[in-house]
Simulated assay, not measured.
Amino acid sequence: MVDRPNKPAALATTPGLPPQAQVNITHDNSRVNAVLPSGESIEVLLYGATVTSWKDRAGNERLWLSDAAKLDGSKAVRGGIPLVFPVFGTAPDHAATSKLPQHGFARTSIWEFMGSSTSESTGKSDNSVKLDFGLSQSNLTDESKKLWPHPFSLQYSVTLTPDSLGTGMVITNQGDQPFEAQLLMHTYLRVKDITKVSVTGLEESDYVDKVDAAKTKKQSGTVTISGETDRVYTPAKGPSHPVVVSEGGAATFTVVRDNLDDVVVWNPWIEKAAGMGDFEPKDGYKNMICIEAGAVKGWQKLEAGDAFEGAQVISV
Protein backbone atom coordinates (compact mmCIF):
# COMPACT_ATOMS: atom_id res chain seq x y z
CA MET A 1 0.00 0.00 0.00
CA VAL A 2 1.31 3.44 -0.95
CA ASP A 3 1.84 5.72 2.07
CA ARG A 4 0.31 9.05 1.09
CA PRO A 5 1.92 12.06 2.81
CA ASN A 6 -1.38 13.99 2.84
CA LYS A 7 -3.72 11.24 3.97
CA PRO A 8 -6.69 12.46 6.07
CA ALA A 9 -6.44 12.31 9.84
CA ALA A 10 -8.94 10.35 11.93
CA LEU A 11 -12.15 12.28 12.54
CA ALA A 12 -12.39 13.47 16.14
CA THR A 13 -16.05 14.38 15.95
CA THR A 14 -19.07 13.73 13.79
CA PRO A 15 -18.69 15.70 10.55
CA GLY A 16 -20.72 18.90 10.54
CA LEU A 17 -21.42 18.89 14.28
CA PRO A 18 -19.54 21.11 16.74
CA PRO A 19 -17.90 19.43 19.74
CA GLN A 20 -20.38 18.81 22.56
CA ALA A 21 -20.04 18.75 26.33
CA GLN A 22 -19.11 15.42 27.89
CA VAL A 23 -21.38 14.26 30.74
CA ASN A 24 -20.48 11.31 32.97
CA ILE A 25 -21.92 9.64 36.05
CA THR A 26 -19.15 8.55 38.40
CA HIS A 27 -18.34 7.32 41.94
CA ASP A 28 -20.85 4.45 41.91
CA ASN A 29 -23.56 6.59 40.36
CA SER A 30 -23.29 9.21 43.12
CA ARG A 31 -21.89 12.14 41.11
CA VAL A 32 -22.52 13.78 37.75
CA ASN A 33 -19.79 15.74 36.03
CA ALA A 34 -19.78 17.73 32.84
CA VAL A 35 -16.89 19.16 30.81
CA LEU A 36 -17.31 21.71 28.03
CA PRO A 37 -15.24 21.39 24.82
CA SER A 38 -13.42 24.54 25.96
CA GLY A 39 -12.40 22.84 29.23
CA GLU A 40 -14.69 24.34 31.92
CA SER A 41 -16.26 21.75 34.21
CA ILE A 42 -18.75 21.15 37.01
CA GLU A 43 -19.44 18.28 39.38
CA VAL A 44 -22.75 17.67 41.16
CA LEU A 45 -23.21 15.25 44.03
CA LEU A 46 -26.61 13.52 43.87
CA TYR A 47 -26.70 13.76 47.66
CA GLY A 48 -28.38 17.15 48.00
CA ALA A 49 -27.90 17.89 44.28
CA THR A 50 -24.91 19.80 45.63
CA VAL A 51 -22.62 21.46 43.11
CA THR A 52 -19.21 20.60 44.60
CA SER A 53 -16.93 21.91 41.86
CA TRP A 54 -16.91 24.59 39.15
CA LYS A 55 -13.59 24.96 37.35
CA ASP A 56 -12.38 27.26 34.61
CA ARG A 57 -10.64 25.91 31.51
CA ALA A 58 -7.26 26.02 33.27
CA GLY A 59 -8.60 23.86 36.11
CA ASN A 60 -8.84 26.66 38.67
CA GLU A 61 -11.65 26.10 41.20
CA ARG A 62 -14.28 28.84 41.50
CA LEU A 63 -16.19 27.38 44.45
CA TRP A 64 -14.89 26.82 47.97
CA LEU A 65 -15.25 23.30 49.36
CA SER A 66 -14.07 22.38 52.84
CA ASP A 67 -11.25 19.84 52.98
CA ALA A 68 -13.36 18.05 55.60
CA ALA A 69 -16.61 18.13 53.64
CA LYS A 70 -18.52 14.85 53.82
CA LEU A 71 -19.21 13.60 50.28
CA ASP A 72 -20.48 10.16 51.36
CA GLY A 73 -24.02 11.19 52.22
CA SER A 74 -23.44 11.16 55.97
CA LYS A 75 -24.19 14.88 56.42
CA ALA A 76 -24.81 18.03 54.42
CA VAL A 77 -21.84 19.18 52.35
CA ARG A 78 -19.77 22.08 53.73
CA GLY A 79 -19.08 24.18 50.65
CA GLY A 80 -20.03 24.24 46.99
CA ILE A 81 -23.72 25.08 46.52
CA PRO A 82 -25.95 23.28 49.04
CA LEU A 83 -29.70 23.72 48.52
CA VAL A 84 -31.92 25.02 51.32
CA PHE A 85 -35.61 23.93 51.25
CA PRO A 86 -38.26 24.16 52.67
CA VAL A 87 -36.91 26.25 55.58
CA PHE A 88 -33.95 28.60 55.97
CA GLY A 89 -32.26 27.95 59.30
CA THR A 90 -34.92 26.85 61.74
CA ALA A 91 -38.44 28.21 62.24
CA PRO A 92 -39.77 27.06 65.62
CA ASP A 93 -42.82 29.34 65.29
CA HIS A 94 -43.77 28.11 61.80
CA ALA A 95 -46.00 25.08 62.23
CA ALA A 96 -45.27 23.38 58.90
CA THR A 97 -41.48 23.46 59.27
CA SER A 98 -40.92 23.76 63.03
CA LYS A 99 -39.74 20.16 63.41
CA LEU A 100 -37.48 20.07 60.39
CA PRO A 101 -33.69 20.04 60.79
CA GLN A 102 -31.77 23.23 60.04
CA HIS A 103 -32.10 24.27 56.38
CA GLY A 104 -34.62 21.50 55.70
CA PHE A 105 -34.11 18.24 53.85
CA ALA A 106 -33.23 19.10 50.23
CA ARG A 107 -29.50 19.22 50.97
CA THR A 108 -29.58 15.83 52.72
CA SER A 109 -31.79 13.89 50.29
CA ILE A 110 -30.74 11.75 47.35
CA TRP A 111 -31.85 13.44 44.11
CA GLU A 112 -32.52 11.85 40.75
CA PHE A 113 -30.44 12.81 37.73
CA MET A 114 -33.03 13.58 35.06
CA GLY A 115 -30.62 14.02 32.15
CA SER A 116 -28.61 16.64 30.31
CA SER A 117 -29.00 18.91 27.32
CA THR A 118 -26.42 20.86 25.34
CA SER A 119 -26.44 24.29 23.73
CA GLU A 120 -28.38 22.93 20.77
CA SER A 121 -31.45 22.47 22.96
CA THR A 122 -30.85 24.98 25.76
CA GLY A 123 -30.73 28.00 23.47
CA LYS A 124 -27.54 29.13 25.18
CA SER A 125 -24.21 29.85 23.52
CA ASP A 126 -22.63 27.29 21.24
CA ASN A 127 -20.77 25.94 24.24
CA SER A 128 -23.00 25.07 27.19
CA VAL A 129 -24.57 22.18 29.05
CA LYS A 130 -27.59 21.92 31.36
CA LEU A 131 -27.96 19.19 33.98
CA ASP A 132 -31.41 18.49 35.43
CA PHE A 133 -32.20 16.96 38.81
CA GLY A 134 -35.45 16.08 40.58
CA LEU A 135 -36.69 15.48 44.11
CA SER A 136 -40.21 14.57 45.24
CA GLN A 137 -41.93 13.21 48.29
CA SER A 138 -41.30 9.65 47.07
CA ASN A 139 -37.52 10.26 47.30
CA LEU A 140 -37.63 11.30 50.96
CA THR A 141 -36.70 9.17 53.92
CA ASP A 142 -39.56 7.95 56.11
CA GLU A 143 -38.48 10.43 58.79
CA SER A 144 -38.59 13.39 56.37
CA LYS A 145 -42.01 12.30 55.11
CA LYS A 146 -43.33 12.40 58.66
CA LEU A 147 -41.93 15.89 59.23
CA TRP A 148 -43.02 17.19 55.82
CA PRO A 149 -46.21 15.38 54.71
CA HIS A 150 -46.91 17.73 51.76
CA PRO A 151 -46.72 16.23 48.25
CA PHE A 152 -44.25 18.33 46.24
CA SER A 153 -41.68 18.24 43.48
CA LEU A 154 -38.44 20.13 43.01
CA GLN A 155 -36.87 20.50 39.58
CA TYR A 156 -33.31 21.81 39.72
CA SER A 157 -31.24 22.84 36.71
CA VAL A 158 -27.52 23.57 36.64
CA THR A 159 -26.27 25.29 33.48
CA LEU A 160 -22.58 25.71 32.65
CA THR A 161 -21.18 28.06 30.01
CA PRO A 162 -17.54 29.13 29.55
CA ASP A 163 -18.07 32.22 31.69
CA SER A 164 -21.06 31.49 33.92
CA LEU A 165 -22.85 29.02 36.15
CA GLY A 166 -26.64 29.17 36.39
CA THR A 167 -28.81 27.37 38.94
CA GLY A 168 -32.60 27.38 38.84
CA MET A 169 -35.32 25.73 40.91
CA VAL A 170 -39.01 25.06 40.28
CA ILE A 171 -41.07 24.13 43.37
CA THR A 172 -44.48 22.59 42.69
CA ASN A 173 -47.23 21.83 45.20
CA GLN A 174 -48.53 18.46 44.07
CA GLY A 175 -51.00 18.10 46.92
CA ASP A 176 -54.53 19.37 47.47
CA GLN A 177 -53.63 21.61 50.43
CA PRO A 178 -51.51 24.80 50.41
CA PHE A 179 -48.05 24.91 51.96
CA GLU A 180 -45.45 27.58 52.68
CA ALA A 181 -41.75 27.21 51.96
CA GLN A 182 -38.44 29.01 51.67
CA LEU A 183 -35.64 28.47 49.15
CA LEU A 184 -31.94 29.36 49.15
CA MET A 185 -28.89 28.50 47.04
CA HIS A 186 -26.08 28.54 49.60
CA THR A 187 -23.21 29.43 47.25
CA TYR A 188 -19.63 29.37 48.60
CA LEU A 189 -17.46 31.46 46.24
CA ARG A 190 -13.70 30.99 46.34
CA VAL A 191 -11.56 34.10 46.83
CA LYS A 192 -7.83 34.61 47.39
CA ASP A 193 -7.94 37.00 50.35
CA ILE A 194 -11.18 37.90 52.14
CA THR A 195 -9.62 41.11 53.50
CA LYS A 196 -9.36 42.41 49.93
CA VAL A 197 -12.93 41.50 49.00
CA SER A 198 -15.73 44.02 48.56
CA VAL A 199 -19.35 43.48 47.56
CA THR A 200 -21.36 46.08 45.64
CA GLY A 201 -24.98 46.13 44.57
CA LEU A 202 -26.35 46.06 48.12
CA GLU A 203 -26.11 49.78 48.80
CA GLU A 204 -29.13 51.35 50.55
CA SER A 205 -30.55 47.88 51.14
CA ASP A 206 -32.23 46.73 54.33
CA TYR A 207 -30.74 43.70 56.00
CA VAL A 208 -31.15 41.55 59.09
CA ASP A 209 -27.88 41.27 61.01
CA LYS A 210 -27.91 37.78 62.51
CA VAL A 211 -24.63 38.43 64.32
CA ASP A 212 -26.18 41.42 66.12
CA ALA A 213 -29.40 40.04 67.65
CA ALA A 214 -31.20 39.97 64.28
CA LYS A 215 -31.45 43.76 64.21
CA THR A 216 -32.70 45.35 61.01
CA LYS A 217 -30.16 47.74 59.49
CA LYS A 218 -29.48 49.57 56.23
CA GLN A 219 -26.33 49.13 54.17
CA SER A 220 -24.68 52.51 53.65
CA GLY A 221 -21.98 51.58 51.13
CA THR A 222 -19.80 48.76 49.91
CA VAL A 223 -19.83 45.54 51.98
CA THR A 224 -16.45 44.42 53.32
CA ILE A 225 -15.65 41.52 55.65
CA SER A 226 -13.60 42.09 58.82
CA GLY A 227 -15.29 39.70 61.25
CA GLU A 228 -18.06 37.13 61.47
CA THR A 229 -20.72 38.16 58.96
CA ASP A 230 -24.23 36.73 58.63
CA ARG A 231 -26.67 39.11 56.96
CA VAL A 232 -29.93 38.64 55.08
CA TYR A 233 -30.26 41.45 52.54
CA THR A 234 -33.26 42.43 50.49
CA PRO A 235 -31.46 44.38 47.75
CA ALA A 236 -33.12 47.73 47.12
CA LYS A 237 -32.69 47.55 43.34
CA GLY A 238 -34.33 44.14 42.94
CA PRO A 239 -33.17 40.71 41.75
CA SER A 240 -32.05 41.76 38.26
CA HIS A 241 -29.54 44.32 39.59
CA PRO A 242 -26.15 42.59 39.83
CA VAL A 243 -24.40 41.88 43.11
CA VAL A 244 -20.68 42.11 42.33
CA VAL A 245 -17.86 40.51 44.31
CA SER A 246 -14.54 42.27 43.72
CA GLU A 247 -11.08 41.44 44.99
CA GLY A 248 -8.36 44.05 45.08
CA GLY A 249 -10.65 46.34 43.10
CA ALA A 250 -11.20 43.89 40.23
CA ALA A 251 -14.60 42.26 39.73
CA THR A 252 -14.38 38.48 40.09
CA PHE A 253 -18.03 37.34 40.33
CA THR A 254 -21.33 38.92 39.28
CA VAL A 255 -24.57 37.43 40.62
CA VAL A 256 -27.91 38.21 38.98
CA ARG A 257 -31.11 36.71 40.38
CA ASP A 258 -34.51 35.93 38.92
CA ASN A 259 -37.50 36.01 41.31
CA LEU A 260 -35.26 35.55 44.36
CA ASP A 261 -35.60 38.73 46.42
CA ASP A 262 -33.02 38.02 49.12
CA VAL A 263 -29.24 37.68 49.32
CA VAL A 264 -27.43 36.22 52.33
CA VAL A 265 -23.81 37.31 52.83
CA TRP A 266 -21.92 34.94 55.14
CA ASN A 267 -18.40 34.39 56.39
CA PRO A 268 -17.78 32.54 59.68
CA TRP A 269 -14.45 34.26 60.48
CA ILE A 270 -12.03 32.87 63.06
CA GLU A 271 -14.03 31.59 66.05
CA LYS A 272 -17.03 30.23 64.15
CA ALA A 273 -14.79 28.40 61.67
CA ALA A 274 -12.78 26.91 64.54
CA GLY A 275 -15.98 25.54 66.09
CA MET A 276 -17.21 23.71 62.98
CA GLY A 277 -15.87 20.18 62.76
CA ASP A 278 -16.29 19.98 58.98
CA PHE A 279 -14.68 23.35 58.23
CA GLU A 280 -11.09 22.78 57.10
CA PRO A 281 -8.59 24.26 56.95
CA LYS A 282 -9.56 26.38 59.94
CA ASP A 283 -8.25 29.49 58.20
CA GLY A 284 -10.32 28.62 55.12
CA TYR A 285 -12.58 31.56 55.95
CA LYS A 286 -9.87 33.70 54.31
CA ASN A 287 -10.60 32.06 50.96
CA MET A 288 -14.41 32.08 50.78
CA ILE A 289 -17.45 34.29 50.84
CA CYS A 290 -21.03 33.06 50.64
CA ILE A 291 -23.33 35.07 48.38
CA GLU A 292 -26.60 33.18 48.70
CA ALA A 293 -29.57 33.90 46.45
CA GLY A 294 -32.91 33.01 47.97
CA ALA A 295 -36.46 33.75 49.06
CA VAL A 296 -36.12 33.58 52.84
CA LYS A 297 -37.31 36.81 54.51
CA GLY A 298 -40.91 35.59 54.37
CA TRP A 299 -42.68 32.51 53.06
CA GLN A 300 -43.71 31.50 49.57
CA LYS A 301 -47.28 30.21 49.78
CA LEU A 302 -48.14 27.65 47.15
CA GLU A 303 -51.77 26.72 46.69
CA ALA A 304 -52.63 23.25 45.38
CA GLY A 305 -51.03 22.85 41.96
CA ASP A 306 -49.09 26.13 42.17
CA ALA A 307 -45.42 26.46 41.30
CA PHE A 308 -42.67 28.88 42.35
CA GLU A 309 -39.56 29.40 40.24
CA GLY A 310 -36.31 31.12 41.19
CA ALA A 311 -32.85 31.23 39.65
CA GLN A 312 -29.42 32.82 39.70
CA VAL A 313 -26.59 33.27 37.21
CA ILE A 314 -23.02 33.70 38.48
CA SER A 315 -20.75 35.23 35.86
CA VAL A 316 -16.99 35.57 35.94
Score class of each variant (00 low, 15 high):
Leu63Asp: 00
Ser109Glu: 13
Ala293Pro: 05
His186Ser: 06
Ala106Gly: 07
Val77Phe: 13
Thr13Pro: 12
Thr252Leu: 10
Gln300Leu: 03
Gln102Val: 03
Asp176Met: 12
Glu43Ala: 07
Leu83Tyr: 15
Ala21Asn: 02
Met288Phe: 01
Ser38Pro: 05
Val255Gln: 08
Pro268Ser: 00
Ile171Trp: 15
Trp299Pro: 03
Tyr156Ile: 03
Lys70Arg: 07
Glu40Trp: 08
Ser136Val: 02
Val264Ser: 03
Asn259Trp: 15
Gly284Ala: 03
Ala76Phe: 14
Glu271Gly: 03
Ser246Ile: 01
Gln219Ala: 03
Gly59Asp: 06
Leu131Cys: 02
Ser220Ala: 06
Ser38Leu: 02
Glu180Ile: 06
Asp72Tyr: 09
Trp148Phe: 12
Trp64Thr: 07
Val199Ile: 13
Met169Lys: 01
Leu189Pro: 14
Ala236Cys: 01
Gly80Tyr: 13
Val232Asp: 11
Thr254Phe: 15
Leu135Gly: 02
Lys145Glu: 08
Leu63Gln: 00
Glu40Phe: 06
Pro239His: 13
Val35Met: 00
Asp283Ser: 04
Ile81Ser: 08
Gln182Ala: 06
Asn287Tyr: 13
Arg31Ile: 10
Arg57Leu: 07
Pro37Gln: 09
Lys75Ala: 02
Glu43His: 05
Thr254Asn: 15
Ala251His: 09
Gly16Cys: 01
Gly80Cys: 08
Ser66Lys: 07
Ser220Arg: 10
Gln300Val: 06
Ile25Glu: 06
Arg4His: 09
Pro101Phe: 12
Ala96His: 11
Met288Asn: 00
Ile42Val: 09
Asp176Glu: 14
Gly115Phe: 04
Gly73Phe: 09
Pro82Asp: 05
Glu271Val: 05
His186Cys: 03
Gln22Ile: 08
Pro82Lys: 09
Ser121Arg: 05
